[in-house]
Write a protein that binds this DNA or RNA. Structure first.
Lengths: 150, 150
DNA sequence: AAAAATTTTAGGTGTTCCCTAACTTTCTTC
DNA sequence: GAAGAAAGTTAGGGAACACCTAAAATTTTT
């Protein structure tokens, strides 16, 4: 029990945000800030957070904030891997600007299968970073690990 | 009034199916057959069809079947354009088999923006058909029309 | 310590998507 | 052409999602 239920689309959004701000920038995401970022009310954010906690992806200390559990970190990395590999494709092959690439990737990352992402990863030569230099996490199923491509 | 409300994901699925079978193959999609194709009950199909009719995308003659309205045709073509351009990308650039390309495209076509599709279209040199030879409809916003690329 | 800002709960709404049960219409087949 | 089988339809529900407002609790600021 615990890791069974799948993420919903909006939960995925919060997970990505929390990971980016808290794990990558050592910042802190407040409920209100997150609400503004997603264009919803704080109460809505609180609710999603509660659901993420029920799924064991974040730990919540009421009024103090949330932090990702190890499973939450793993899940966020899967999503950000997808997001960033899509960005590589959109900028590198399709010639989008990094900004539109990010926007488009945000709309899709949640829906894209790992198989497709790995196909893109392979055909892009297993990039280590996205167009804005953020790290692309490795997927053992892809090959990345042990690879030498720079 | 009529063309305002957006399609839902499942409505998009039926629209694609109806177009493919009825407009491209001159066949007929029965409620039960559609239900089997989507893994749901016939009653569910009937309901979606009713909603498509409310949105003026199909015309329904109870117990006789549905046919697409001009708006329904336009909408289906937009979706199938996306679907098939994604297939081109997946097969041509990523090396997927036509079958997996189709599967992956089905999961994504509804969510992909027209801008992104047109970027892919451009970078693929405005293909006229998908990997399985089905026509890719043109989008005036892309360039296709009047273009000479074969 | 009061005022301001933030966060959380409680309780609701609308949409989507799916279901079962019961009924109607159409198609078969004798 | 009537009876039974098959296909399609409505009516009525239910669960999950993604929102919201209003009110209460808890920081934080001044």
């Amino acid at each position: 029990m615990g890791t069974k239920s799948k993420l919903t689309a909006s939960e995925a959004g919060y997970l990505k945000l929390i990971y980016r701000v808290q794990e990558e920038e050592s910042g802190k995401v407040g409920t209100t800030a997150a609400a503004r970022a997603f264009g919803v009310r704080p109460a809505t954010v609180a609710e999603v957070l509660r659901n993420l906690a029920r799924k064991n992806l974040v730990r919540r200390r009421p009024y103090r904030g949330v932090e990702l559990t190890p499973q939450g970190v793993a899940e966020a990395r899967k999503l950000l891997r997808k997001h960033r590999i899509l960005e590589v494709l959109f900028v590198g092959l399709l010639g989008l600007s990094p900004e539109s690439a990010c926007e488009e990737a945000s709309k899709l990352d949640y829906y894209v299968s790992e198989e497709l992402i790995n196909a893109i990863c392979r055909s892009s030569n297993h990039p280590k970073t996205c167009p804005c230099e953020k790290v692309i996490f490795e997927d053992p199923a892809c090959c990345g690990a042990g690879g030498k491509k720079k």
